[in-house]
Write a protein that binds this DNA or RNA. Sequence first.
RNA 1: GUCCCCAUCGUCUAGCCUGGCCUAGGACGCCGGCCUUUCAAGCCGGCAACACGGGUUCGAAUCCCGUUGGGGACACCA
Length: 473
Amino acid sequence: MSEVRVRFAPSPTGFLHIGGVRTALFNWLFARRERGKFILRIEDTDQSRSTEESIQAILEGLRWVGLDWDEGPFRQTERIDLYRQHAITLFERGHAYWCVCSAEELEARRKEAQAKGLAQKYDGRCRERGITTPGGEAALRFKAPQEGQTVIDDLIKGRVVFENILLDDLIILRSNGYPTYNFSVVVDDALMGITHVIRGDDHLTNTPRQIPIFHALGYAVPRFGHLSMIMGSDKARLSKRHGATSILAYKEMGYLPEAMINYLVRLGWSFGDQEIFSVQELIEKFTFDQVQKSAAVFNPDKLLWVNAHYIRQGEPKRIAELLQPFLAQAGLGDEARAMPAGWMERLVMALRERSQTLVEMAQAAVPYLQQDIPIEDEAAEKFLTPAIAPILGHLAERLAALQEFTKPGQEAAFKEVMERAGLKMGQLAQPVRVALTGRAASPGIFEVIDLLGRERTLARLRKGVERAKAARP
RNA sequence: GUCCCCAUCGUCUAGCCUGGCCUAGGACGCCGGCCUUUCAAGCCGGCAACACGGGUUCGAAUCCCGUUGGGGACACCA
């Protein structure tokens, strides 16, 4: 049984987007499950549009989501000679011919054909010219078969049949000596021993163009699997118009890589009713026959839910580490680092049930890290009233008098103050919450006290008393 | 225009291959409730779909044909 070899072959003409990551993920999962190889190949033969920056963004994006590759990254621009050699071989064997039609002529003919409602296909006028050594600019065209059918037994779509009469004589070598996509892919897939070509749906019609090239070159044809596209809420193909589509943008928005993986895999693949999968589980369970044939709409709300799930379930220590850059961005990096060991983990445990992203968590962390906190007007108006001032003052006294500043003592203090004032927990806790955090919503009040510690708790409580006294009745 | 792919709640999907167990299940979101020191989380409940039309069959979400709708491809881009 030969080894499974799959590849992810992005073109570096922009950032790595969500759809690309999903394609890479399905390839990677299949490779890992089959104990095969996952190969990374950069298709940068478009000189004018490829950038080094894009290449780096692709590598960084893949690393972030944990899709490690076994071979590569190979770059097609470093393999140009290989393509030329193969192209010449094809010419020598009579499978290709020189074409001297200019790009302008071709464009004009194409437009004319379109206007007349005819097939937009090369008319083959250079096919029989038998040019052996082109004088000026010339491109090499592949002689596509014009009879019979090309059948694909697709891993996902099933049997797909194309009539060869529809096949165009594709240019395989441009007049500038560079190979075109449909040719370099075939040469690389063949030479790299790719056994399964798993790629986007948009390549399905390229497949019947590529298969004859494999044949002409005398190489084995790999198996193909075409994944459906991911669309935006307007059912149009996902693009910049739909907001963040770069995988790294999600990192910056505070999403966890495992959440991205989990969400993306469920976009088109399923395992019964299960929603949450660890990567290990995915490797064990992933199969192509559970991959959906139809396109899927990207749903940001569900991604958010998955992310919140992983924030809640994650190791507090790790979440705390991942949170650090977001705190730094909020100007609280130094404060966070100054906290005693284990404190950040307690903070994470207190905030994780209320944070859907790390950005949200960083915002929620402000009252516990910042020295002076603003008190939201609406919250103060509602809860820091003159009537509550003496009661808060009393609570501050009781807390200050505690021998040990621990939860049982704090609870006793609250209880005593409540009884004396004839208040219920909610009536006391809300004003305290506003005084301590400046907000009307927060983790449990004793968790807040624990995070703030004795000094800050007492200071903020006293400050709250002043604010309450000064409030309009 | 030509060719190709696709079609279950608003969205992701189970079920379809191997018709009856489907008065179509789960998840996100939404609505209501419970819990409760707030907000969440959690739990319980609700709303909501087999695109349409023919066939095949005792019986079709499931098989076949057509229609409609959506997507993709038709470059010296990838």
